[in-house]
Write a protein that binds this DNA or RNA. Sequence first.
DNA 1: TCAGCGAAAGCCAGAGTTTG
DNA 2: CAAACTCTGGCTTTCGCTGA
Length: 209
Amino acid sequence: MAKRHATSATAASAAPNRQRIWETIRALHADGQPISARDVWASMVDTIPRTRVEDYIRSLAAGGYLKLRNPDRKRGVVAEFELIRDVGVEAPRVRRDGTVPPVPGREQLWRTLRIIGDFTAAELADAASTPESPIARNTANEYCLFLRAAGYLQVTRPSSPGVPTRFRLFPSRWTGPLAPMIQRTKQLYDPNTGKTVYTRVTKTEGGEP
DNA sequence: TCAGCGAAAGCCAGAGTTTG
DNA sequence: CAAACTCTGGCTTTCGCTGA
């Protein structure tokens, strides 16, 4: 239900809720105030459930971003934290156990294509791949096709037998560091602008908003 | 090119414990 | 006794990859 919207927003723009929580934490830290779930939540009480704030704070603590100031406290006692690792305005992505999830493949592709300039899908996949996060060429190819359809990429050399299509990013279409994502509904969503920039029209449903 | 599968992230709700 | 806070577990939705 409402969860769906929250989740998609999460994927699309790094969790607005978490972003707000992170900003609040940094603000409290800047003021030299102790950081507790209650304090953070109090600053945003109208919009975010407290459990969500606690969830994120616990993840940050597990990940080493926050340090518990009163580790000997008993259950039921307010836990106070200190910001020991400020990574900037962008809210860190952490799992519940504190580990950092791998960078999404789309993001690697998006950053890489801007750097290498002129490329084929295979070249982009190779360049964007890392030992930790290899990216399938198939994935890169589909991504390129969507970006081209949405007008982000121009074809510098059409495909011919044995020669793959070469693409290049329109400099003016670099909308920001957040990678446009292909949603399950086969729409291309640009989190930088917050807009759906392309919708693949299927045979059965010619529907468009 | 399309469809399905598996894995992961984020969110919510309930239960238990401690303090005033 | 009541209120407040923390902790744990489960649910929903989406993404990325593989195979036909």
